[in-house]
């Protein structure tokens, strides 16, 4: 049953990303089916669903990380500020500079904390020292890491704890002032304390950045997000305000999932 997902488009006054008829194939097997929805600006949107449902695949479409995988074929469109990101005229490097990303496994570069934060600026050609230092400080403060690392900015990032590493990755993403930050299960490898730190950070960033977070932890989604989309087997089942989706789900499948009958 490839149901019509049109009803998933809920009225959003100020959307930043519009997904239209998005289909994605890995070779011959289809991973995403006909996705249609809008993502609001400067809000936190959560994507939930059982593992393998296509959440990560979807957000990797938004900054075209799937380009790195040879066998992926995409049709449909994702509009970012009225511009189709799959359009030939869109430069993928520009696109990625506008869209930051935080991965499931924290992966700071084996460089100093400072160099990690300003990596994006450096490769963008910024060389002025005061600018870089300021950006580093601002980003680290934003990501609530400044107080912990300000005395050892030039130590290796590999010496940080798991939660600190992940916050460093967020700082690294913020430093290039992106419009959107994608988070691919950012807390799944962290202990509860660090998870709390990150969730708090996401709440703080809410309102300043558009954040799209993938999680399989429904509590987390309900804690941090404004809107939630439920994906199941590559299809968007339901999309709506987080409070609505978790209290009065429209679809049976959504209800089954959030009540823990499967997944």
């Amino acid at each position: 049953m490839k149901n019509d997902n049109r009803n998933a488009i809920i009225a959003i006054e100020d959307s930043i990303v519009q997904v239209r008829d998005l289909n994605l194939f890995y070779g011959t097997s289809q991973a995403l089916f006909n996705l249609n929805f809008d993502i609001p600006r400067n809000k936190v949107t959560a994507l939930i669903g059982p593992s393998g449902c296509g959440k990560s695949t979807f957000i990797r479409c938004i900054n075209r990380m799937n380009d790195l995988v040879d066998s992926v074929n995409i049709n449909g469109s994702i509009q970012l500020d009225q511009q189709d990101i799959f359009d030939k005229s869109v430069d993928v490097i520009d696109l990625r500079r506008k869209i930051g990303m935080v991965f499931q496994k924290s992966n700071p570069f084996p460089k100093s904390i400072y160099e990690n934060v300003i990596y994006g600026l450096r490769i963008g050609g910024v060389t002025e020292k005061p600018v870089l230092e300021e950006a580093a400080e601002v980003s680290l403060k934003r990501s609530a890491l400044w107080d912990e690392v300000k005395d050892r900015l030039h130590d290796s990032a590999m010496g940080l704890s798991g939660g600190q590493m992940q916050r460093l990755c967020i700082a690294r993403a913020i430093a290039v002032s992106p419009d959107i930050i994608l988070m691919d299960e950012p807390c799944s490898a962290l202990d509860p304390r660090s998870t709390a730190h990150i969730e708090e950070l996401i709440r703080e960033l809410n309102g300043e950045y558009t954040i799209i977070i993938v999680t399989h932890n429904m509590q987390q989604a309900s804690r941090v997000s404004d809107l939630t989309a439920f994906l199941y087997e590559g299809e968007l089942i339901e999309f709506g305000k987080t409070t609505d989706l978790f209290t009065v789900p429209v679809k049976k499948a959504t209800e089954d999932y959030i009540t823990g009958r499967f997944g």
């Binding site: 900054n63 990380m65 490097i93 930051g100 992966n107 570069f109 994006g120």
Partner: peptide, 23 residues
């Protein structure tokens, strides 16, 4: 080298060559 390092570099808008020479 773990693949995550490449991905995060690309995600920050680095070109392939930049990723190669810097990371």
């Amino acid at each position: 080298i773990p693949g995550g390092l490449r991905e995060s570099s690309y995600a920050l808008g680095a070109t392939k060559f930049q990723t190669l020479t810097r990371i």
